[in-house]
Each structure stands twice: as structure tokens, then as C-alpha cells.
């Protein structure tokens, strides 16, 4: 922002605004730093009865393992508890959910944005209502038929369900991106002899890439972060990371095993961390996509 006005802020105003941002940064980031650091300690340090500072210095960790850092939590989670399987499942689910959602979502959203008829509006409203429904309410509806027809527990069932649940959101976001592309573009392509699909494929999509990537990111986040669907619809062998972590809490009450959960939590956060690092701009533009039109 190139401000033409030189703002003269008084010292207290500036001081308090910096202080406020510092406090916010601390609140936002510190829990992650703390948990990351603590994941390399033993349980009696991370949850220390004597002094919370033990989690920083690692008194017990040194006593138990000889070094201030230990990878026991990670070893236990990834190898003993087979967290790698869940990580693999998450990767499969996310990949297919993102690809399918984007394919059918771009087609649908393009149609919605280019149709001036009233039903297009009603479809969008219906999508909004679907978007507002908590996923767990639908899960109650899947259980019985899936059990009866033997569809329960498979990865691909979950993939299809997640694609469907994400569709309303995907449609709204892509719709707002398509709206920004002038209609003249595809109309002139069609005057030149393209079919609707060719106009969409060769003229609109290349212009839409930034929007598609942004929507893909959010589609990925929805699939990656989902707990309601994956926890209820996957069998134990097919669990993805998030229900697996929830499982750690219920079953592993013996000492040290909480650290498996801590290590798993850090492992599951790392990809998101990297994602934000590389795609910060896209995430910001995606969050504001629906908003800026007013």
C-alpha cells in the first residue's frame, strides 16, 4: 500500500500496536514451538509434576536416555504403532479427493457461473445449505446403508464421501473465481467455432489456473483435517492420520505412550506447516475470494 498521506503516529499508539502484535504472534505460534520441542522429550518431562521448565531442559530425558533429545516418541508412533500406514492412507485419500473434487467442481462451477437462469441460483443456495450442515449429521445417514451393502471401511468409500461433502464449498469458491473471468472470452472462442467444452478446456481453464490451485489447496485441507467422516467410516486397518491420533489417546494410557500421540501430532502438523510456507499467498487469496465482492 503506497500511502500518500504520511501518518504521524504517536509513540504510545505505535508501541501498543507492536506489543499487541507481538502478544498475538506468541499466542499463535508458541503452542506449536512448545509441542515440537516437547515431542523430543520423555513423558515425565513434557508433563512434569515438579517443574514445567523440565520440558525445556529435559532433566528426565537426560536421566533416561543420556541425551537431552530422544526420538522414542517418533519411533513408537511411526514404527511400533504403524503410523506410517495412516500417513500413507492420508496421502492416498487427499490425492484422490483433490483430483476428483477439482475435476467435477470446475465443470459444475463453470456451468453455474455462465448460466443466468434462476435454477443456477437455487443450486448455489442449496449448496450453501449443504455447506452449513455438520458432516457428522450425514455420517449418521451413511452408516446403515454402508454396513448393509458392505461398503463400510474402505478407503475409496471415504474418498467419494469426502469429495461429495467438499463439493458445495468447492463450487462456491470456484464460482467466485469464474465470475471474475469476463464472459466475452468464452463467447468469442465459441464464435470462432469451439464447442462449449473446448472453450472451457482450452480458453477458460488456462486462465483459471490460480483459482484452481487455490481451491485445490482448500480441498486438500478439508480432506486432510477431516475427523468426523474418517473416524466413523474407516475400518481400523484403513485409518488415516487424524482418527489414528484420536485412537492413540483412547488406548495408550501406559507411561510413555502419550508421547506417541505427541510425536504423531507433530508429524501430522509438519506437512501443513510446509504448505503454508509455500502457498501463503494462495491461501490468503482463497480466504478472501468470496468476501471481496461484498
Amino acid at each position: 500500500m503506497s500511502s500518500t498521506v504520511v501518518e504521524h503516529k504517536s509513540f504510545p499508539v505505535r508501541f501498543f500496536s507492536y506489543l499487541f502484535i507481538l502478544i498475538w504472534l506468541f499466542i499463535a505460534a508458541f503452542p506449536f514451538v512448545w509441542t515440537f520441542w516437547g515431542s523430543f522429550k520423555v513423558e515425565l518431562d513434557f508433563f512434569s509434576k515438579e517443574n514445567w521448565a523440565n520440558a525445556i531442559t529435559g532433566v528426565r530425558t537426560i536421566g533416561d536416555t543420556g541425551s537431552a533429545f530422544t526420538g522414542d516418541g517418533y519411533y513408537g508412533a511411526w514404527v511400533k504403532e504403524e503410523f506410517w500406514k495412516s500417513a500413507l492412507n492420508t496421502a492416498i485419500v487427499c490425492f484422490f479427493v483433490v483430483c476428483t473434487s477439482l475435476t467435477i467442481g470446475t465443470l459444475g462451477a463453470y456451468a453455474l457461473s455462465r448460466s443466468g437462469f434462476r435454477y443456477a441460483f437455487w443450486l448455489l443456495i442449496l449448496a450453501l445449505v449443504f455447506r452449513a450442515m455438520p458432516p457428522i449429521t450425514l455420517v449418521a445417514g451413511y452408516m446403515l446403508p454402508f454396513f448393509e451393502w458392505g461398503l463400510w471401511g474402505h478407503l475409496w468409500t471415504t474418498i467419494i464421501v469426502l469429495v461429495a461433502i467438499n463439493q458445495p464449498f468447492t463450487l462456491w469458491m470456484l464460482h467466485s473465481f469464474f465470475k471474475k473471468i469476463p464472459k466475452d472470452l468464452d463467447e468469442s472462442a465459441m464464435v470462432d467455432g469451439c464447442t462449449s467444452f473446448q472453450a472451457f478446456r482450452y480458453v477458460i481453464l488456462p486462465v483459471m489456473w490460480p483459482g484452481v490451485i487455490t481451491t485445490g489447496l482448500f480441498s486438500f485441507l478439508l480432506a486432510y483435517n477431516d475427523f468426523a467422516v474418517t473416524a466413523m467410516l474407516l475400518s481400523k486397518e484403513n485409518q488415516t492420520m487424524v482418527p489414528k491420533i484420536a485412537g492413540f489417546l483412547g488406548t495408550t494410557q501406559t507411561e510413555g505412550n502419550v508421547m506417541f500421540a505427541v510425536a504423531a501430532v507433530v508429524s501430522a502438523t509438519a506437512p501443513l506447516f510446509i504448505l503454508v510456507m509455500f502457498f501463503q499467498r494462495q491461501i490468503v487469496s482463497g480466504l478472501t475470494a468470496g468476501a471481496v465482492k461484498g
Partner: peptide
């Protein structure tokens, strides 16, 4: 902005 995004982007359960 990077650090501010973290609480929102992280898996709710995590």
C-alpha cells in the same frame, strides 16, 4: 501473516 495462519490451518483435533 505466516505465523498468524497456523492456528487456523492446523487440523482442529490436533
Amino acid at each position: 501473516i505466516f505465523f498468524s495462519l497456523l492456528p487456523m490451518i492446523v487440523t482442529p483435533l490436533v
